[in-house]
Amino acid sequence: MSAVITTRGLTKTFKSHTAVDSLDLRVPQGVVYGFLGPNGSGKSTTMKMLLGLTRPTRGEIEVFGEPLTPQSRTRLLPSIGSMIEAPPGYGHLTGAENMRIVADMLDLSSHQVDRALATVRLTEHKDKLVRNYSLGMKQRLGIAMALARDPSLLILDEPTNGLDPAGIEEIRTLLVQLAGQGITVMVSSHLLDEIDKMADVLGILSAGRMIFQGTRDDLFQHSIPDLLIETPDPAAALALGITATPVTGGIRISGTDKDQTAEIVRRLAVAGVPIHEVRRIQQSLEDVFMDLTGRGGLL
C-alpha cells in the first residue's frame, strides 16, 4: 500500500524542549490512521508540521510522494483538509456564512459547500450563528470546512474532543465512511477508546517519540502478556528465586518470552512444585497501550 504521508527523522525543538523527536511516520493510502498519545506528546506539533504551519527543526516530510516545501505546500494544500487544535469558525457569522468564506478562499462551488454541510448533517443548522452552536456542531462545521475542498487527505486533530458519547460515535462513523470513499484520514486523540474502534493503523507517540506504528494486531504482538502459573503452593515457587508476584491460586510473572517460560516451568517441575495450569493473561488493547506509554496520562 503506498504512503500518503512519510516523514523521516522529523524533529521539532522549542528552545531546550524537544516536542517531536526523530519521527518516522508512514500513513498508508485510504486508511484511518489513529495518531495516539498523551496530552503534550507532540501530536498537534506533528500535524502542524505536516500542514506546513510549523517548520521542522530537522527531518523530511513527503506528502503524496512530494517533499513538503513552501512551494509544494501551495500546490498540495487544496488536496488536504484539516482541523487543528480547535474547530475554526467566526462566532458572529452563521455556519453558511463561514462556509462561504472558506469557499471564497479556495474557489469552491456552492455545490461543494452544500455537500460538505450535508455530509456532517449540518444543513438544517447552517443559518444559526456559530456562537450559538453546541461544541459538537462546531466540530462538525470544522470538519465540513475541511471536507468542502474534496480532499484526498484529511488531517484532524482531536475531532471528538469534548463531545458526548453520541457525538463521538457520529464523528467516528463519519470518518470510517470517508475512508470508505478513498479519503485517507489521519486522526489524533489522547483517548484510545475513540481511535481503537475506527483506526486501521495506529501510531503511538510518547514524549515526542514514536513508540509504535502498525495495525491493532501488530500492537498486541508488540507486548508480552504476563504469565500466570496456577499452583497450590506459590510459596514453594517463590522460594526457588523466581521473580514473581503471588496472586490468588498461583504466581504472576511479567516479561517472560517463550524460552524463559519453558525454563521456569522446568525449574518448578524439577523442584516438585505442583503446576495446575500455565497461561498468558488476556490483555485488553488499553493494557498494551498503557504498557507502551508507561501510563503517561492516557485515559
Partner: peptide, 17 residues
C-alpha cells in the same frame, strides 16, 4: 479579534493566506 476567537489564523493559513 475575530481571528483569535475563531481560529481564523489557522483557517486562513491552511487555505494559503
Amino acid at each position: 479579534d475575530i481571528e483569535h476567537a475563531g481560529t481564523g489564523w489557522t483557517l486562513a493559513s491552511i487555505a494559503g493566506f
